[in-house]
């Protein structure tokens, strides 16, 4: 598939591990690549954010398709001033997410793609608990369905925070200041999508440019794809931009 002499470009969406391999093979044959790989996308809530709206956005951007999206919110980084209020409202909302049969149009949380994936996520949750991560909402397994788990007071350097979870696990990290929040946001090998919540749009834009990621959204969540906007990541999130120019 990769070494055929008849193709001039490989477009791949998937894991960073496989993407790097494809990049190597393509490079050796001077093929072009578009690699859209993993993410560890931060959702940053600044001191002056509208908490209600930030919570709504975080619920959508964390749990759509059970978290199985490259652009999904992987870390929720909240300024200490609104940390408690955010957690309270977020947990309350997440508790109420309907789960079960996806053919029922009310369902929000459906199954993960396969059993192996569920097993893998269970290990991540167990390991996080063993390392004393604080649980604010306990999830449960029913077949291939995993209901949401929320960890709070998470250390950004922990395995939990540094893993692309691809599952309905929310990880909340406290920041001392707005600057600290941006520093934490950048502290990952990945750089696909990110989001900042603030009532000050120009300050938000200024901070957005300080996050090293392919895309940053202000007062929105990380899962956004507009055919007219260049799509792609920086750092370990890939090479190339998928864009349709009008």
């Amino acid at each position: 598939m990769l070494t055929t002499p008849h193709s001039q470009l490989i477009s791949f969406t998937g894991s960073t591990k496989v993407g790097k391999h494809i990049g190597e093979v393509a490079g050796s044959m001077l093929k072009r690549v578009a690699l859209e790989l993993g993410g560890n996308n931060p959702f940053v809530v600044l001191e002056d954010a509208n908490i209600e709206r930030a919570v709504d956005a975080a619920v959508f951007g964390k749990f759509i398709h059970q978290g199985q999206i490259c652009m999904i919110i992987n870390r929720i980084i909240v300024h200490q001033a609104c940390y408690k209020a955010f957690i309270e409202k977020f947990v309350e909302k997440v508790k109420q997410l309907p789960y079960g049969d996806p053919t029922n149009s009310d369902t929000i949380i459906g199954p993960l793609i396969n059993e192996k994936q569920v097993d893998k996520i269970m290990v991540i949750i167990e390991n996080a608990k063993k390392s004393n991560a604080k649980v604010a909402l306990e999830g449960k397994r029913e077949g291939n369905i995993l209901t949401p788990t929320i960890f709070i007071d998470v250390d950004n350097q922990s395995e939990l925070a540094q893993t692309e979870l691809f599952s309905p696990i929310a990880t909340i990290i406290k920041a001392d200041s707005n600057e600290h929040a941006i520093q934490l946001a950048n502290d990952t090998p990945f750089g696909l999508s990110s989001a900042i919540f603030t009532e000050d749009l120009s300050y938000g834009e200024q901070l957005a440019l300080q996050i090293n990621s392919g895309m940053t959204h202000i007062n929105d969540q990380t899962v956004n794809d507009n055919p007219m906007v260049p799509f792609g990541g920086s750092k370990a999130s890939g090479i190339g931009r998928l864009v349709i120019l009008g």
Binding site: L9, G14, L242
Partner: peptide, 21 residues
């Protein structure tokens, strides 16, 4: 045109992530 494009897409949002290439 470049010629032949190789496309490899994932399981999560397979339709749009394939179609964008």
């Amino acid at each position: 045109p470049l010629g032949v494009i190789t496309s490899i897409s994932p399981f999560n949002f397979p339709m749009n992530l394939s179609m964008r290439t």
